[in-house]
C-alpha cells in the first residue's frame, strides 16, 4: 500500500479511507483484535490505547478479512439476526468509518 519509501514528496501520505458498501475492510497489521484472558473479553490493541468493542462490534471486526465486502457483512448479519438491511448498513458503515478515521481499519478493495 502506502508502505514503499518514495522520493516524491507526499507519496507517502496516509490518505483518508472512505468505507462504502463495496469496501473490503481489514485490520492493518498494527491493529490487533485480542482475547484478553485475564478479563475474559475482546479488546482491540492499537498504539497508545486499548479499545473495548461491544459484542456487535467484535462480531463485525471478526468478519473484516479483507476479502468480504461491507455488503457481504451486512447480508450475513441481516440473515443471522433477521433484521432490516438498511438499518444494519447504517450501523456497520458508521462503526467501520469511525475505526478507519482513527486509522485502525484499511480497505483492501481500494485501488492504491
Amino acid at each position: 500500500m502506502d508502505g514503499a519509501a518514495s522520493s516524491t514528496p507526499g507519496a507517502n501520505v496516509h490518505k483518508r479511507v472512505v468505507i462504502t458498501v463495496n469496501s473490503k475492510p481489514a485490520l492493518p497489521s498494527f491493529v490487533r483484535l485480542h482475547h484478553d484472558k485475564a478479563r475474559d473479553r475482546w479488546v482491540i490493541l492499537v498504539p497508545e490505547r486499548v479499545l473495548v468493542p461491544d459484542e456487535t462490534a467484535v462480531e463485525i471486526v471478526q468478519m473484516c478479512d479483507g476479502v468480504k465486502t461491507v455488503r457481504d457483512l451486512v447480508d450475513e448479519l441481516a440473515k443471522k439476526y433477521n433484521a432490516d438491511r438498511a438499518l444494519i448498513t447504517v450501523d456497520v458503515l458508521a462503526m467501520l468509518q469511525d475505526l478507519a478515521d482513527k486509522s485502525f481499519l484499511e480497505d483492501k478493495g481500494a485501488t492504491p
Binding site: R49, A57, M95
Partner: peptide, 9 residues
C-alpha cells in the same frame, strides 16, 4: 465515538 460500538478503556 457515538456510533462506533467501540470504547476506549
Amino acid at each position: 465515538g457515538p456510533a462506533d460500538g467501540v470504547a476506549a478503556l
